[in-house]
């Protein structure tokens, strides 16, 4: 567009014609959502409980950190850590076939990789807590059920990330090896593996960070870890103990994030 004296005018971006319908629809959704929330009817004691929780958190029950006869904070945290380590390793191994199955460049036909992707997203949407409930039925309550639940659930995310990585590999080295007479195994070992390994390790560590957080809540339903004593302390209202457990969880996760972040930075 040009005016009389030849200056160029920049046209204003045109507004989306669907703007108002979208805004009205969003407003209706929000009215529905907020009107259904019973914001009234808090326990009158909420303020008091909040105060005692704060008091408990700032004067933690240090005696709980280590008890000679067991069932203390350190052992609970160690249990949580062990659950997440084993769960992560199990899923990192099990997801490799799934990743190759659902990587688009590994199979000739699209439905094959497509079915793999659907399988992975099905596993991903199945909550780990529900998986843990199922495994508790099989192996009884305890940490092992938690390990199995995390191991199975993490396949969903790791498999997807690994598959994305495999889809991005460069086939040049593979072809060069094939031209010089390498077998299929040798191609995988010397051309594919070196390209995907750093990514695999990176995602596995990332998933490990997530799994440590998940493992802290598995105890809520009796699948081992620090969650069990936490729920117990919450229901008996022993706030100093809740305080020390929360403190322990925060410290453990922060330390693990730091270590894992450092290793991942070195990997990439």
């Amino acid at each position: 567009m040009t005016t009389k004296n030849g200056d160029h005018l920049i046209q204003k971006p045109r507004k989306n014609p669907l703007r108002w319908p979208i805004i009205i629809a969003l407003a209706l959704v929000y009215i529905w959502a907020f009107s259904g929330v019973p914001f009234t009817g808090f326990k009158e004691t909420a303020g008091q409980i909040m105060k005692s929780i704060m008091a408990g958190i700032f004067s933690p029950d240090w005696g709980y950190v280590y008890l000679p006869e067991g069932e203390d904070l350190l052992r609970g945290l160690l249990d949580t850590l062990a659950i997440s380590i084993l769960g992560t390793v199990i899923s990192a191994v099990l997801c490799i076939p799934f990743a190759f199955w659902s990587a688009r460049n590994m199979s000739k036909y699209r439905p094959i990789s497509g079915s793999g992707k659907i399988m992975l997203s099905f596993i991903r949407t199945f909550p780990e807590i529900i998986m843990a409930i199922l495994f508790i039925k099989a192996v009884g309550p305890g940490s092992f059920a938690g390990v199995l639940a995390l191991g199975l659930h993490s396949i969903g995310m790791l498999g997807k990330l690994f598959a994305d990585d495999i889809e991005n590999i460069d086939f040049g080295p593979s072809e060069a090896l094939l031209a010089s007479g390498a077998t299929r195994m040798q191609q995988l070992w010397f051309a594919v593996l070196p390209q995907v390994l750093p990514g695999f390790l990176n995602y596995t560590l990332y998933r490990f960070e997530i799994n440590v957080r998940s493992a802290t809540i598995l105890g809520v339903i009796g699948a081992g870890g620090i969650g069990t004593p936490l729920i117990f302390a919450l229901s008996t209202r022993s706030w100093p103990r809740v305080g020390i457990i929360l403190l322990g969880i925060v410290v453990m996760i922060t330390v693990i994030d730091l270590i894992s972040g450092y290793v991942r930075k070195k990997l990439v």
Partner: peptide, 13 residues
Amino acid sequence: TLPDLLLAALFVA
């Protein structure tokens, strides 16, 4: 650092 279910357990209390 605190997972959602854990926060929910706290707020329920």
